[in-house]
Computed example of a mutant assay.
Amino acid sequence: MFVNAAFALSLLSATYALTIGRRDDQPSDADLLASCPGGPGSSVVEKADRCTLINIANNPYIRVWSVLGDPQLNCGGGTEDIVVTLGGSTTVEQTTEVNADLGVDLDGISIGGGVSTSSSSSSTESQTIQYNIPPGQQAVYVAGIEHTSQTGNIQVNYGDRQFGHFIWFTGATVTQLTPNSNDVEYTVLQTACGTDPRDVSSLPQ
């Protein structure tokens, strides 16, 4: 009886070890995200039918600033203001960021399930103004577009089994920023000559 019990325990341990070993036999988060529609694809899994944001947490809204048109400069050493036309147009797309360095370019990847499912995932803004630039200064017109921020995991659905399953979930979380075209602020960003006129980091989010 002792021998049988020892054999059963040994078999159970071997089965447990084999089960643990299988945990490595699965696609990585990088492969899962790369296989999403619009992604670069993966050599490990086929293209996914769809990717969906799940376990969604709503973050505070943030304002993302974008430059409209080209900066205008009064940096030629003159002593008078110059009158210029500032502005232009820009299109702001939904952005997706992952909370880990997976080495996957997420630009263009299509992920549903969040706020972008019920609203547009892009916003085009266009506006111009006349503006006086003092000597030694430069200016550019900018648009601050409110973005909805949502964080969650990604559910990846496949048409055929991948590593034994039709559905996989990422362990890594991603954050989606979706522009809201109904909440846009415009302002002139004026800075000293010799600095980057397109640097919007000083503007509030």
Rank of each mutant, 00 (worst) to 15 (best):
M1G: 11
A5F: 12
A5T: 11
F7S: 10
L9R: 10
T15I: 10
I20L: 14
G21C: 05
R23Q: 12
R23A: 11
R23D: 14
D25N: 11
Q26L: 12
P27H: 08
D31S: 11
L32Q: 01
L33C: 12
A34W: 01
P40E: 15
I54Q: 06
A57K: 11
A57N: 15
Y61A: 12
Y61K: 11
Y61P: 02
W65S: 06
G69V: 03
D70W: 12
V84H: 12
S89Q: 15
T95D: 07
T96I: 15
V104C: 09
G108D: 07
S110I: 08
S110F: 05
I111Y: 00
G112H: 00
S116R: 13
S121L: 12
S122P: 06
T124P: 00
T124V: 08
S126F: 03
Q127Y: 08
Y131P: 08
V140D: 03
A143G: 00
T148M: 05
I154Y: 01
N157G: 05
N157P: 02
Q162T: 07
G164C: 09
F169D: 02
T170I: 02
T178N: 05
T178V: 15
P179Q: 05
S181Y: 00
S181T: 02
D183S: 05
E185I: 10
T191G: 04
A192T: 11
C193F: 05
T195V: 11
D199S: 09
D199Y: 04
V200E: 05
S202V: 09
